[in-house]
């Protein structure tokens, strides 16, 4: 009889999915690190430069530097880094299908796999970036160490899930309407302002705050600051559960869209 090759013997569906994820993970990591000679440096330098420039700008303007219960620069750094984490997951997840199109020739690889794996990898990288930021600014003499580290991780987890959900959902949209990626890039800038990354929302009138609180990113950005600086007075009415609700809804919506349009996405 024919000898059974372990490489093609029948595997359970879970095992197949696991094999695809490991393979994709390694591939994504290599391509992220070798897109050009500068890539691994740029990965860490980009958020750091981003922070440094914003800090410089805010320092230069010097207005509204009084943050209730927290030092200004650590307050800004942690907010920006968390926001960038979300945005990177979202944008990278959104573009995952386009970047891995050639791989759908193999029937094991589903479009959703590429988004999931890319977001998981990006979350790990961004967590690493965040740690570097914390150590760097602590080394510079700022009070950057989290007062409630585990709770901070919980907020970051919610933020990553939300990024994954948005990535999953918009990745389907972008596959069918490539124009929509422009809109996504366009709205990510106002989101930056509306999420209280640069401007403390506490100083805004209550009537406006009420509307701004519909944005889950504001909740997450405020919460992570509250976990880092225990004396910080976060905006009234923020809740982690609200962020998780958004995260769960977008993830489920994204997965449902992937199930519905899987065949049409692969066939493209």
């Amino acid at each position: 009889m024919k000898d059974v090759n372990p490489a093609t013997a029948v595997r359970s569906p879970y095992k197949v999915a696991w094999h695809v994820w490991t393979a994709l993970f390694m591939r994504e990591f290599v391509s992220r690190m070798t897109t050009d000679r500068f890539a691994p440096v740029w990965l860490f330098l980009q958020p750091i430069l981003h922070v440094v420039i914003l800090v410089a700008v805010r320092d230069f303007i010097g207005k509204g530097r009084l943050i209730p219960g927290a030092e200004f620069i650590p307050w800004l750094v942690i907010g920006i880094t968390t926001f960038i984490m979300f945005r990177t997951l979202w944008i990278q997840g959104m573009n995952a299908i386009q970047a891995n199109k050639a791989l759908f020739a193999y029937r094991q690889v589903h479009p959703a796999d590429t988004v999931l794996v890319r977001c998981a990898m990006e979350a790990k990288l961004q967590a690493f970036v965040l740690m570097i930021m914390v150590f760097m600014f602590t080394g510079l003499g700022f009070d950057m160490l989290p007062d409630a580290p585990l709770e901070a991780v919980e907020v970051l987890l919610a933020m990553s899930l939300l990024g994954l959900g948005m990535g999953l959902t918009t990745s389907v949209m972008v596959t069918f309407f490539p124009e929509s990626s422009k809109i996504v890039n366009l709205i990510s800038f106002p989101l930056y302002l509306l999420s209280g990354v640069m401007i403390p929302i506490q100083f805004m009138p209550h009537g406006i705050q009420e509307y701004l609180l519909y944005n889950p990113l504001l909740h997450a950005v405020e919460l992570i600051r509250a976990e880092f600086f225990s004396s910080y007075h976060a905006v009234q009415g923020v809740s982690l559960w609200y962020v998780y609700q958004w995260a769960i809804c977008t993830v489920l919506l994204g997965l449902a869209l992937h199930v519905k349009f899987k065949v049409r996405m692969v066939a493209r």
Binding site: M26, R27, A102
Partner: peptide
């Protein structure tokens, strides 16, 4: 056409396909 990612080397592509078919061991 399909099946290969142009920006990756032949070896990387082969490794990927081997992995998704569960052939990591050999």
């Amino acid at each position: 056409g399909g099946g290969f990612q142009g920006s990756m080397t032949g070896r990387q592509n082969v490794k990927f396909v081997a992995r998704i078919h569960g052939g990591n061991a050999d």
